[in-house]
Design a binder for these strands. Structure first.
Lengths: 168, 168
DNA sequence: CCTATACAGTTCTAAAATCGAACTGTCAAA
DNA sequence: TTTGACAGTTCGATTTTAGAACTGTATAGG
């Protein structure tokens, strides 16, 4: 399976993973949310190779997650700014951070605290049901096929037979 | 930067990425939440190579995200079950799915709908502030260093000078 | 007894991605 | 004229991943 195949799977998760599902992309996005905007900023904050950074930024721009905005002429230079589509990744970032805060901290505690401007308090992100407002957990959720699902269940992976021996 | 270095960074996001931040791991976890438990199940659902699948499962077990539970003696066989730590990844999964539902669907609509058992309705996951219950967005959140932050700001990446020329 | 199948891996080689370091090009400041 | 900042590009070496076959245990069938 290649990266670009992921984006065509009938699964919102696979498609999203096709866009942001790798280590460097996620770290680049972290920097974006921490207000990094420029090539050198990303590079020195992350220690990513310049080659990969250029590639990942290009991809994020192509996907509409970042916008490449000129900030100076001569020499032409650009900043990378989160689009609305990019800003909408915020819940994913927060969910990732929160899991780390819960399960991956050492004895010293959290590296970063989050304060909600509206209420002024340090908070944790909580995921709730849009309909009733109750917090969600895996066991309380039932999934079923939507309109974009594959029509036949047998179509799951029929393109190719894959015999492990000599195919008789 | 190697994988295992990520887990020691003073950043909950980096640490989490060290555990789940790759394509196959995320897809394996998707299958876990869809109730897949066995090696062959993962392999045929995902088309991942058996080699990588074995490796990723081992890593997830080592990290405490999955538990390897025997389900038959002779020959010994095991199932891979989400631990509580693994179940706690649910908000991340839902956030990823929801972003895909919002930004990556084609004209046919969502591949999968989610129904909340408690209220019976199809829902979207919404991320709210644990303190005031309001929905969160990036601009309303202020971050500041917590107890586990690096003490000196200059410690960001001082271990090694990295001259791009001959270091004069 | 012999063969086929299910399952859960392991092993191997070729192909692809990443790393690390240097190089390019433009412009400003010293 | 030289140096440095910035935003990349290029290239050889290393690491990961893909793809396919192989191993080992056990059951079922003939």
């Amino acid at each position: 399976m290649r990266w670009d195949e992921l984006e065509e799977e009938p699964c919102s998760m696979a498609r999203t993973i096709g866009v942001i599902g790798d280590r460097w992309t996620l770290l680049i996005l972290r920097e974006c949310f921490l207000r990094t905007r420029r090539f050198e900023g990303f590079q020195s904050a992350l220690g990513i190779t310049r080659h990969l950074l250029a590639e990942r930024l290009k991809k994020l721009v192509r996907q509409g997650v970042l916008r490449r905005v000129p900030y100076q002429e001569a020499p032409k230079r650009h900043e990378y700014i989160l689009t609305q589509k990019g800003l909408d990744l915020y819940p994913i970032m927060m969910a990732i951070v929160h899991w780390g805060d819960t399960h991956m901290v050492d004895e010293r505690g959290r590296p970063l605290l989050h304060q909600h401007r509206k209420c002024g308090k340090n908070f944790d992100p909580v995921m709730v049901c849009s309909e009733c407002g109750e917090p969600l957990s895996a066991k309380e959720v039932h999934t079923h096929p939507g309109p974009g699902a594959r029509s036949t269940p047998a179509a799951k992976a029929p393109e190719k037979a894959k015999p492990r021996r000599k195919a008789a």
